[in-house]
Design a protein around this nucleic acid. Structure first.
Lengths: 371, 371
DNA sequence: AACATGTTCTGAACCGTTACGGTTCCTAGT
DNA sequence: ACTAGGAACCGTAACGGTTCAGAACATGTT
């Protein structure tokens, strides 16, 4: 059948109305409120529209008038290749997409390169709200979003007054994990973490760098872990923390290698993500270390592969993060003109999942806390 | 610092101009063409804007005027949970997102539920073009997209006259794979495939169903494989084809079980995706079958996990599919007002990757074609 | 002094639609 | 015959910008 030839730019609602000898309102109603006009006229309108090649009301013009874009923007200042490969990030995206799909609203990936200072793309995005995920605390794009007069939800970011937020209690989760290791008897630990800042640093991260990390999640996990171990007398300055810019299995393995080469005494490697932990697992295997007999390895996130590997890790409901954020943004009962818009802060539950990669250190006696 | 209080709806470009005592043009220029006004005035405009809480030109109004939405729509009529879990689909999404990011253009996931007949979401999406991927041939959403007066690129869909298309040569690839098996000597094969239609059918798919499949890719792979084997005298009606609606490892395993339970004589299982093949691999292992000694298993797509498993499969450049589609859509040299818009059909190269899951059948003699 | 050139700013048209508040007309009730 | 009431349709005013062709004025050239 083939589509009608694309005559150059014509056929608007107005021209269609003129052709039909009816008002623009009527044509508009034919599309948007069928009950407002007789079925015969409606049919005539639609038929003529087809004849003239009128594709129906222009979405942008409609959005301008109705003040609804029908989409929300997702800002993640990351290399997309990262976002699309990290199962945790994907979970968030999936959850968000599902929530939006339920509401018939689109999700727009707003282009925002990590290094890019130009925030025009944020200003140009025709969306009814934003979800911000996984951006450094000081990212200019985030500021640009907050400038926009639309609702915003941040995920896994530090609290911003007046801005809705969804996040698990990373601190509590990491504390629980830390005490799990402490109870097992580990005192000589090492840490693998993801990038702490926009500047690349593949190697050991001194304490100063840990505390000044621009990535809130990483910072929280590290400092909380530090507190737990300092509480039992470990001097955190002596704990090796290896950072990796890229977040892949291979980098996890190489980080573990770097850590173990320099610190063969460690009995446990705490990783701030499952990916890194799985990489570390490979490296342990390569070295002929038995896990958990010779070395304990823990992850964070609770991705599917971790479960398969029976990794000791902290599970967090990534899909729920995305979904909650979407629901928060789209909830029509909020932001009704009357009610005062109150900030919502949703904290999601996490769960320590003890797998088969954590056990007491080989040489250490158990440190019991109970009777 | 906290954001300025959101006074209810005010501060437009016009009101700002009035406040300043300049024309709207000047304010517009302050944002879009700094060279068109003196630096002092520009600063005054921007300062006043900040003071008044004017967030800058409204994106939708701008889009209406400039006729550029700054985003392209992605239509994939699938459960999003599927799209976000299938590495092949993700690759396409990633490639598309990268191409768009390069151009500073957003990617909007257009909500389109599989069963949903309401195509309003397609009509309401404010986008400059569409990419359509992985939808059944007769999907109403696809028609709605074609109705829209914007450029469209389809990926892995049957050719539509006048519509740009990106796809690998599935037929050629499957033929190559088929002959690989034929040369190895396999004559008793079984097949695992993904959903063939919107109606769920977890089980054997008769030939009729294969040929009438609404999913072009699956249909092509099956019918091409059939042709290859018929060419060497195999009666395709006797070849068991097991279909699965969901596309997971577990379903792959269960499909393999169903296939082998009913047809223990098969020496090779051809799967139309790597995921299914990896699932089948698990099932083979569970049964104590050695692969490839006892059973040959092949996949399709060439995802990372397949490579890790050294699966014999057909590699296709999924990222390139997305990227090409994006570039096609965004290429400014095309669609210049003068030049005639010619249909582009891009065919991507595939590559048979022979891994360690294919070998001659145990009992059969080799069927050599060469000397 | 006349003229060309450039900078800075403006007026008016236009983008395509929907919201709002009518008006007109027909029918049924009294 | 008169009117209330609903169905069907319409006119006008936004919605918030961008753009183009100049106007106004200052500066340099001959």
């Amino acid at each position: 059948m083939g589509r009608p030839i694309r005559t150059r730019r014509q056929a608007t609602l107005a021209s269609l109305a003129a052709e039909l000898g009816v008002s623009r309102t009527t044509v508009s109603n034919a599309y948007n409120r069928p009950d407002q006009l007789s079925p015969e006229l409606r049919k005539r309108v639609l038929d003529t529209a087809r004849k003239l090649g009128y594709p129906g009301p222009d979405p942008v013009a409609r959005s301008l008038r109705t003040r609804k874009a029908g989409a929300i923007g997702l800002l993640l200042t990351e290399n997309l290749s990262y976002a699309f490969r990290d199962p945790a990030a994907l979970g968030v995206l999936e959850g968000l997409a599902l929530a939006c799909e339920d509401a018939g609203v689109g999700v727009q990936l707003v282009p925002a390169r990590p290094g890019e200072e130009d925030v025009a793309t944020v200003h140009r995005a025709g969306v009814d709200g934003f979800v911000v995920y996984s951006v450094p605390d000081d990212d200019p794009h985030l500021n640009a979003v907050l400038q926009r007069p639309v609702p915003t939800v941040i995920i896994d970011q530090p609290v911003i007054p007046g801005v809705d937020r969804v996040a698990p209690d990373d601190a509590a989760a990491m504390t629980t994990l830390g005490y799990h290791l402490i109870e097992l008897g580990h005192r000589e630990i090492g840490v693998l973490c993801m990038r702490l800042s926009r500047d690349r640093n593949d190697g050991f991260a001194p304490r100063d760098r840990q505390e000044k990390a621009h990535y809130h999640v990483q910072r929280t996990r590290l400092t909380t872990l530090a507190e737990s171990f300092e509480a039992v007398g470990v001097d955190w300055s002596t704990v090796p923390v290896v950072e990796r810019f890229e977040h892949t299995l291979d980098e996890g393995a190489s980080a573990a290698r770097q850590l173990l080469d320099a610190n063969p005494q460690v009995t446990a490697i705490v990783c701030t993500s499952d990916i890194l932990a799985l990489g570390a697992l490979h490296e342990a295997q390569r070295r002929g270390l038995r896990v958990p007999a010779d070395l304990t390895i823990t992850g964070f996130d609770g991705i599917a592969d971790a479960e398969r590997a029976e990794l000791t890790t902290v599970y967090q409901p990534v899909r729920e993060k995305g979904r909650s954020a979407g629901n928060l943004l789209l909830d029509p009962t909020r932001r009704g003109q009357g009610n005062p818009v109150t900030q919502q802060v949703i904290t999601l539950e996490t769960e320590l999942r003890i797998g088969k990669t954590s056990a007491p250190p080989r040489t250490a006696e158990q440190h019991w806390f109970g009777p």
